[in-house]
Design a protein around this nucleic acid. Structure first.
Lengths: 295, 295
DNA sequence: CGCGAGATTGACTCGGGTCAATAGTAGTGG
DNA sequence: CCACTACTATTGACCCGAGTCAATCTCGCG
């Protein structure tokens, strides 16, 4: 992949560069440097009191919508922390199909997958204008030797990421399409809340296709599922704008009752009633006490 | 049968220890120790020349088939490295269903998911008698401060694990049942080769149910797929015993990528070309090509 | 204002999950 | 040694969830 037609990769932050080609120059609306303390707060790890020193400053870099932060195979040397904006990280398979791995947003760290092979294993693309903090790996290692807590924090963040991916694996391996979309909405909602935005009404920064790729579904299924949630009053949808109406149901949802669309036969209509939520089913192997939504 | 030439994990030297599943008791009858060098070799990371010192010794612990190494929620304090034997790590969802996350074997590190929350996020169970090396996290941290390479190695191993999980996510999100099983067999084969065992004939250490859980499939589908591979001459199956007959085909076996992402023509062309990638290698004596994967 | 990317919906298909019956295997104890 | 039990694996029948194909519809943007 390594598309050659994409001119910009990492912009030169120090210079007020003018864009080549038709690109507009970097906007410097945001701050350019962060100290260690800000960095820790952003990562949601215990702040180290002793390191208020201004000696360590971390450079910011801005990316515009659609720009690549790094590509697959590119030599690894720095980690990135999202200060503002939204991105996606993707894997590209042998046929050029994208597989979305994550949607980094404020406070998230990415680029970690490059440590092992010294080359980034994934590609990061800005879904909106972004302000990122550069964390040169070498520099970070040195820092870790001075401030032990930092080192530990790094382990912690990587461990957190590992756990997150475990959750993804679990979700992809076990949940229905509806449950995946529901969880996705819930986690987005929580994320927005953490960032100080509304958890009840927000705009998706990604396309249906990207959501589907992330959740292991097709864009059509994502779209249909959102529409179904809308019909059931769980959410409101209008293109990219999502309104959360029933967070609890979304949280516990496993399967939706069949739509009133097809009245094939009344064989199993017992599911009319709230087949949402509900917990307590013991084990899937045990024969079916219910195939009602609850599972 | 044919358990013959498959190296068994070290037999327990006449221990009468009876394991009741569910307990987290480690027995230490064959107390062995490894030094740092052995440990690095095991983890497949560059050996640090300067640390031949015998000062740092790491304890071994034996677990018998079925025993739990750690459980979910248990306070975290040590990492584990597999010296011999086979295990599984599982997540347990809110309904008690198991989700297999990995099958650690020789040279693998696990327990890392406990770092972040200070409690293990998964459960590790021995699938055979195992010999594990304990790596107390505190001790490791201290070591890292003395030997910088170690610290870097740790980042590397964690990064490797992260990349592995990315691969899992990608697989679960995009590949067909057949492709998943095929990949699983290939990676097992490679793993056995690395460990010095036969890559062509080996015994599965896990049940169909566990394989299915790992791959996001049901045990029936796993069984059926193995039978299908057998019929096509790709492998031989007899219960737990697997013989690899056509590694190349297994490697390239795939099925339509669900997301017709990217260029429409590219994917269209892909499905024509890429079906079963039988490279005219050795043996393939069997008649014409089957069209398994064909789209 | 038209163009193209994204989103929505419908109709059809089928991969793989579910249920169920059967058989091979291992461990236990008489 | 065999009987008894529990677990694991294999197969078949059935069918539903979600992928595929395709026809609009909407919206933002040059």
């Amino acid at each position: 992949m390594t598309s050659t037609h994409i001119p910009e990769t990492r912009p030169e932050p120090g210079s007020s560069n003018h864009s080549t080609s038709g690109e507009v120059a970097w906007q410097r609306q945001g701050k350019l440097w962060s100290n260690l303390k800000e960095l820790c707060e952003l990562l949601r790890i215990p702040v180290t009191p002793s390191v208020n020193e201004e000696e360590f400053l971390f450079q910011h870099v801005q990316f515009k919508t659609g720009q690549r932060v790094h590509t697959i195979g590119q030599p690894f040397d720095t980690l990135f922390i999202v200060h503002s904006g939204f991105l996606k990280t993707v894997l590209i398979d042998e046929f050029g199909n994208e597989q979305v791995l994550s949607f980094p947003m404020k406070g998230d760290l990415f680029g970690v997958d490059g440590i092992h092979t010294k080359r980034y294993a994934s590609e990061a693309v800005a879904l909106s204008n972004c302000d990122l903090i550069l964390l040169p790996f070498k520099k970070f290692i040195q820092l870790g030797r001075v401030h032990a807590e930092l080192e530990h924090a790094m382990y912690s963040v990587m461990s957190r990421e590992l756990v997150r991916e475990q959750g993804m694996v679990s979700m992809l391996g076990a949940l229905s399409a509806e449950a995946r979309v529901a969880r996705f909405l819930v986690s987005l909602s929580e994320r927005f809340a953490e960032m100080g935005y509304s958890s009840k009404l927000f705009n998706l920064r990604m396309t249906r296709h990207e959501i589907g790729s992330y959740l292991g579904l097709t864009l059509e299924t994502v779209s249909r599922t959102l529409s179904a949630f809308n019909e059931f009053g769980l959410i409101t949808v209008d293109q990219r704008s999502i309104g959360i109406k029933d967070l609890d149901s979304l949280r516990t949802l496993r399967r939706l009752p069949p739509s009133s669309a097809r009245s094939k036969q009344a064989s199993k209509k017992a599911r009319e009633a709230a087949a949402l939520g509900r917990s307590g089913s013991t084990d899937s192997s045990s024969s079916g006490d219910l195939q009602i939504a609850a599972l």
